[in-house]
């Protein structure tokens, strides 16, 4: 299972903090965005159009990253820490 976490405005859009997806041993980000988009079309589109950053196991990854079973994926809206 792949865990997908939503933060800030994405959590509010999703109405929950996380989802889990079974995409086999490995999957592309496009496959993941399709799976997210089934229930959350606007968020799936943001991921597919690369409008938000994506981290896997706490590091930001590029669009061609391969996600593996058991990974923790986070969808990250633009950061605004630091006062």
């Amino acid at each position: 299972m792949i865990t997908v976490k939503y933060f800030a405005q994405l959590r509010q859009m999703a109405g929950r903090e996380e989802d889990q997806f079974d995409l086999g041993a490995q999957a592309t980000l496009d496959q993941l965005s399709d799976a997210i988009g089934l229930n959350l079309p606007k968020i799936g589109e943001l991921v597919r159009d690369k409008k938000i950053m994506v981290s896997v196991n706490y590091d930001v990854v590029s669009a061609d990253h391969i996600i593996k079973d058991g990974d923790e994926v986070a969808l990250l809206p633009p950061f605004s820490g630091g006062a």
Binding site: A8, Q9, A74, S80, G81, G82
Partner: peptide
Amino acid sequence: AIAELKRTTPIWKR
């Protein structure tokens, strides 16, 4: 460091 924090650290302000 403060510029890097704003750029790389997943913290959000509402």
